[in-house]
Design a protein around this nucleic acid. Structure first.
Length: 235
DNA sequence: GCGACAG
DNA sequence: ATCTTGTCGC
């Protein structure tokens, strides 16, 4: 177990977009670098799955990110890291990545483990321009990524069946951009979409394997708890 | 123009 | 995301 909870202030990379127009241009320039023709790591294998999440303190203009690596077989924490920085972008639906990614990259850099899969809070291809947070992070790191969101954003879906593992297509018009996945019986589903170098079937299988006791994957729960702690301890 | 809108 | 206590239920 690594205790990399020291807070390194990760500033936004120079040239990071400042305006919505610049951010849209960046999405447009990077979107075709997403790799969709790889199946991704095999579900059921012993993998290092890394959850990333971010917490904000608007008062102090601070953002704390956490990256927590779990063993997919045992769901035990193998390594963790945090980073603290300044908020790099306002929250704009469709541009979430520009707010979260700089600090997430800093945390991933400090993580003493090699991710086989990165699980993001939010969407990948389920995005107005098919380039959400998970896709963006995947392109920048080259790592296999998926997005697991708590809300359907602007997309529509029929209710999945009541059993754990049941799914329903998440639709943008008639295009399946992700899946509503029931991780617990009778509990609101999570919303899974492909990020980079993982197909949708495997993205859902990994999500289900990581979410055994609670609605959300353990990766997300661990990263959420750690980034909140890092923010509280930041100064 | 108005409302909706991942975190 | 964040503001925020107790409370109902398995």
């Amino acid at each position: 177990m690594n205790h990399t909870t020291d807070d390194t202030t990760g500033e936004p990379p120079s040239g990071w977009p400042t305006t919505e127009a610049e951010a849209l241009a960046v999405q447009d320039a990077l979107r075709d670098r997403v790799v969709l023709d790889e199946p991704g790591p095999a579900p059921g294998a012993e993998l290092t799955a890394v959850g990333v999440d971010v917490a904000y303190d608007d008062e102090r203009d601070l953002v704390a990110a956490a990256a927590v690596a779990l063993d997919t077989r045992t769901l035990r924490v193998v390594a963790e890291a945090t980073a603290v920085g300044r908020v790099a972008f306002p929250y704009v639906p469709g541009l979430l990545a520009f707010r979260e990614i700089p600090t997430v990259l800093a945390a991933l850099d400090r993580l003493p483990a090699t991710p086989d899969l990165v699980v993001c809070d939010g969407y990948g291809l389920a995005h107005p321009r098919r380039f959400g947070l998970a896709a963006h992070l995947g392109v920048l790191t080259g790592l296999p990524t998926i997005g697991v969101a708590k809300n359907p954003f602007t997309f529509r879906h029929a209710p999945p069946g009541p059993a754990r593992g049941d799914t329903a297509p998440l639709l943008d018009g008639d295009e399946e951009v992700g899946r509503a996945l029931r991780t617990r019986e009778g509990v609101k589903p999570v919303y899974v979409s492909v990020g980079h170098r993982v197909n949708l079937d495997r993205a859902c299988a990994h999500t289900l394997g990581l979410a055994r006791a609670y609605r959300l994957p353990e990766t997300t729960r661990a990263a959420d708890a750690l980034c909140r702690r890092a923010l509280a301890e930041a100064r």
